[in-house]
């Protein structure tokens, strides 16, 4: 095999390898998906966050507008504090916006759903969402149902 053919073969090999890596990065992983480039931060405290995780989506009307940046526990008020980053394009959320933790489908991932209120003021960077609704814990609900059913039967 000539030198030239050999080098061409190696060149094709390396190009194929890089193309495969590129495909994995662009087509398979979430690189091309939603990512907050320039955003502002909001905090909200919940009694119970259920299965919410860092990087979980923040949605308004089902549209993804940001993601959870950090989750902390406030041992003074016994509440979970969730920090989320919201894209700058959506900077006109009323200040009495409500935040709740919902589940996508019956067994899907959990996300923060925002429901806008009617206030004239807008939420600014670092603001806190006061109206919150904790995650629904399925076991608790089933437990309550069973318990109520049993006490009614007496």
């Amino acid at each position: 095999m000539s030198r030239r053919a050999l080098e061409i073969a190696v060149g094709i090999f390396i190009a194929l390898g890089i193309a495969a890596l590129f495909m994995l990065a662009m087509k398979v992983s979430n690189l091309s998906a939603f990512d907050v480039k320039a955003g502002y931060t909001l905090t909200a405290s919940f009694e119970n966050i259920g299965g919410l995780k860092v990087r979980s989506p923040v949605r308004i009307g089902g549209v993804r507008i940001g993601r959870v940046v950090s989750i902390d526990y406030d041992s003074e008020h016994f509440e979970a504090i969730v920090m989320m980053s919201v894209d700058n394009r959506y900077n006109e959320l009323p200040s009495d916006t409500e935040a709740g933790i919902y589940t996508a489908g019956l067994l899907g991932e959990q996300y923060i759903g925002l429901a806008p209120g009617g206030a004239e003021e807008f939420l600014r960077d670092g603001d806190r969402i006061d109206e919150t609704q904790s995650a629904i814990i399925l076991e608790k609900m089933i437990g309550n149902l069973l318990f109520d059913g049993a006490s009614e039967g007496k």
Partner: peptide
């Protein structure tokens, strides 16, 4: 050099 490239191709072709 080869194995990482081959691995990327393996995964990509597998998908």
């Amino acid at each position: 050099i080869s194995l990482p490239l081959l691995t990327a191709m393996f995964s990509a072709v597998g998908i």
